[in-house]
């Protein structure tokens, strides 16, 4: 299982926290999976960065059992 945490506008489409029993192989596959789940969020998901264990990771980062994945929309602080 991996745990996903969603922020900001993504919470209009997903719960704040979500567990995935079937683990996508990597971040790219996870992004595609989420786009499939919520097509209306596809554009926003395309702009998101992902972090594992509070560190930004690339598209080919492999996911492992127990990972906590943050789905991070474009920043808009300030």
């Amino acid at each position: 299982m991996v745990t996903l945490t969603f922020y900001a506008g993504l919470k209009d489409y997903f719960p704040a926290d979500m567990n995935l029993g079937e683990i996508p192989s990597d971040i790219g596959s996870l992004r595609q999976y989420l786009r499939g789940q919520k097509p209306l969020a596809s554009a926003l998901l395309g702009q998101c960065r992902f972090a594992v264990d509070n560190t930004f990771v690339d598209e080919d980062h492999l996911l492992r059992q127990g990972d906590i994945v943050l789905v991070i929309p474009p920043s808009s602080g300030g």
């Binding site: 922020y7 900001a8 943050l70 991070i72 929309p73 920043s75 808009s76 602080g77 300030g78």
Partner: peptide, 11 residues
């Protein structure tokens, strides 16, 4: 950098 890169969001 805070505005563009830090994971903070406004509604």
């Amino acid at each position: 950098r805070i505005k563009h890169e830090t994971p903070i969001w406004k509604c």
